[in-house]
Amino acid sequence: MGQTVYLIDDLLAAPGKGRELLAAYRERYVPGGVARGMTLEKVIVSPPVWLEEASNRLTILWTVEGPGGWWGQAAQSRYDPAVAQFWASIQDLVVSRRRHFGAADADVAELADA
């Protein structure tokens, strides 16, 4: 079960807060994520200009190795109060957020045949 599993944070920043949100994420979330075995692959800023009057969308792509890697990070984050505190601390910087989990289309059949 060595497929690459993607964890995707989709954060819609409060108007004018995109850069501040990303700085907080990089400073206070990324180190813990890396410590839980996640690899930060990409941060996409949409649109690619820091808006002052409207919202930037941050699409943050992490990877782990297989469902085992997924459960590994989940088991660590779920009971870590620092993780919950981080998400609570950025409430005023986001309009909405979602986290999705996925895999490459070529891996779907093997993963779903678990």
Binding site: M1, V5, P67, G68, W70, W71, A74, F101, G102, A103, L111, A112, A114
Partner: peptide
């Protein structure tokens, strides 16, 4: 095994 590893569960 299958219950924990299935993507309908974890993903």
């Amino acid at each position: 095994g299958p219950y924990m590893l299935h993507p309908y569960h974890w993903a």
